[in-house]
């Protein structure tokens, strides 16, 4: 279970406060969506969960399975099952996708006290998981995300998620830059991972992603706080009325 308690976050180098007391609970087996206007702190929330530098938690806590993750390095959080699918996945020139995936997978296995996966088993797994996301192994021989289209980058994020099998999946604006077909492939990839042992936090600005990844709950984040929580119908309502009612000004 993910528990975010009264989370206050400011930028480390500036006085600007971004999150002003976020409270949120995502039980295992559920998919929760966070929607909100631009600048409401959605991406900040995802980065703070994953452990990116540059933010300072001034109050509150983030617990995953009852354990605070705030003191952990990003790789330690990953070992606990935390995964962030980036809005803008990094390009890493010179590192082949396969090398990157295998390094990550084996680093996680090592931290979890498992044996490293051998090449044959790894390749079999990549081929199998890749096929479901229309990702050819040839594409993974190229450097990580370099020269990939927006859709390819997002599919490659979901492949990483499928390979690393995290238990807390945070998806940051996974729908941005996707056409209808890519959106469907990515959503199917995510839906395939839904299970009773896994919690999802899906961050999005638009409702359309939620037609494909149907959430159990929808939260509206605005002005650094969760303003409203509801079922999937809340997303439709937002699509119609916009965020103006939550920001205190017309959108």
């Amino acid at each position: 279970m993910l528990e975010i308690k009264n989370l206050h976050v400011k930028l480390a180098d500036e006085d600007r406060v971004i999150l002003k007391g976020v409270d949120l609970v995502v039980p295992k087996g559920e998919v929760h969506a966070i929607m909100g206007p631009n600048g409401s702190g959605k991406s900040t929330l995802s980065y703070v969960i994953a452990g990116r530098d540059g933010y300072e938690v001034t109050e509150g806590d983030i617990l995953w399975n009852g354990e605070s993750v705030l003191g952990m390095e990003p790789d330690e959080r990953a070992a606990k099952g935390v995964f962030l699918a980036f809005q803008y996945p990094m390009e890493i020139p010179g590192v082949a996708g396969l090398t990157f995936l295998r390094t990550a997978l084996n680093a996680l296995r090592k931290k979890r006290g498992e044996d490293e996966m051998n090449t044959a088993a790894f390749m079999k797994l990549v081929k199998e998981k890749g096929a479901k996301l229309n990702i050819d192994v040839e594409m993974l021989k190229r450097p990580v995300n370099v020269g990939f289209s927006g859709g390819e980058k997002k599919r490659s994020e979901i492949l990483q998620m499928a390979m690393l099998e995290p238990t807390l999946c945070v998806l940051d604006e996974t729908d941005s830059g996707l056409d209808i077909d890519a959106l469907r492939v990515v959503s199917e990839g995510v839906n395939a991972l839904r299970s009773k042992d896994r919690a999802f936090l899906v961050i999005t600005h638009y409702q359309r992603l939620l037609n494909h990844i149907v959430p159990d709950k929808v939260h509206v984040l605005a002005n650094g706080r969760i303003q409203k929580t509801g079922g999937k119908e809340l997303a439709l309502e937002l699509e119609k009325l916009g965020y103006a009612g939550f920001t205190g000004k017309a959108a």
């Binding site: 994953a50 452990g51 990116r52 530098d53 390095e73 990003p74 790789d75 959080r77 990953a78 070992a79 995964f83 962030l84 980036f86 996945p89 990094m90 890493i92 990157f100 390094t103 990550a104 997978l105 680093a107 996680l108 931290k111 990483q160 690393l164």
Partner: peptide
């Protein structure tokens, strides 16, 4: 950060 978020130590 991208690498570390995937579990690769510093």
């Amino acid at each position: 950060f991208y690498c570390k978020s995937r579990g690769i130590p510093d």
